Amino acid sequence: MTTAHSGSLPAETLGMSEAELLCDTISTLAESPVWDEKRQVLFWCDILGKTVRSAALTPGQYREWSFPSTVSSLGLCDNGDLIIACGMDIVFLDPESGATQTLCSIPAPEGA
């Protein structure tokens, strides 16, 4: 019987590679990571920074899109667009062009 242990074995021996920094950015409050298999890109929200950010597996391919309100979650649409909860709005973002389109706005409650 053999057992795996990390002891002093190099990472390559264990079938692992070294971690690599894909982008050097700091988010205020990062949430909602979404992996896009087609693009090989990770998208995430910086809620308080009011941005959507992305990093590809190839270093140096970092992008971000700013919004007027907090960006609290996102999802990937079949056509490659992102659907984003932005403040009281639901917005589509085309990550290729940066174009946005508001799907709907939720009215703020009275007194808010």
Rank of each mutant, 00 (worst) to 15 (best):
L82M: 07
V52E: 13
I106R: 07
P95S: 07
G49E: 08
S17L: 12
T102V: 14
A19K: 12
D36T: 07
E37H: 04
A55K: 11
L42M: 14
Q101T: 04
V41P: 07
N79Y: 00
T100C: 01
Q101N: 07
C45A: 12
L21N: 10
N79L: 00
T58D: 09
L9T: 08
I83M: 15
G75F: 02
A108N: 15
S69Y: 10
Q101I: 00
K50R: 15
N79T: 02
D24K: 09
W35Q: 02
E18I: 00
A56V: 04
E31C: 08
V71L: 09
S105L: 06
L14K: 08
V41L: 11
L57I: 06
H5R: 10
C77A: 15
T28F: 08
K38I: 03
H5K: 09
L29N: 12
L82P: 09
D94F: 00
T100P: 00
E18P: 01
L93K: 08
G49Q: 08
V52L: 14
G80V: 03
V52Y: 13
L21F: 07
S6M: 12
M1N: 11
C77D: 11
I47E: 15
T2F: 14
T3I: 14
A99D: 13
T2M: 13
P33H: 02
V34Y: 05
L22F: 05
I106D: 01
I106M: 08
P59D: 06
R63C: 10
D24N: 13
T100H: 02
R39C: 01
L93M: 10
P109I: 01
G7V: 04
Y62R: 08
I84K: 02
R39D: 07
E12R: 11
A99V: 00
F43A: 03
C77R: 11
T28Q: 14
Q101L: 05
G98R: 07
G60T: 10
S17Y: 06
L48Q: 14
Q40W: 00
M88A: 12
S69L: 02
S17I: 11
R63S: 13
E96S: 02
L48V: 12
C45T: 13
V52A: 10
E20V: 15
C23E: 05
S54R: 05
G80C: 04
A85Q: 10
G87A: 01
A19C: 10
I26N: 11
F92M: 08
E18R: 08
G111W: 03
D46F: 06
C23V: 06
S32P: 06
L93Q: 09
T58W: 04
E96K: 06
S54L: 01
L103G: 01
A30V: 07
S32T: 09
S27D: 14
Q61W: 03
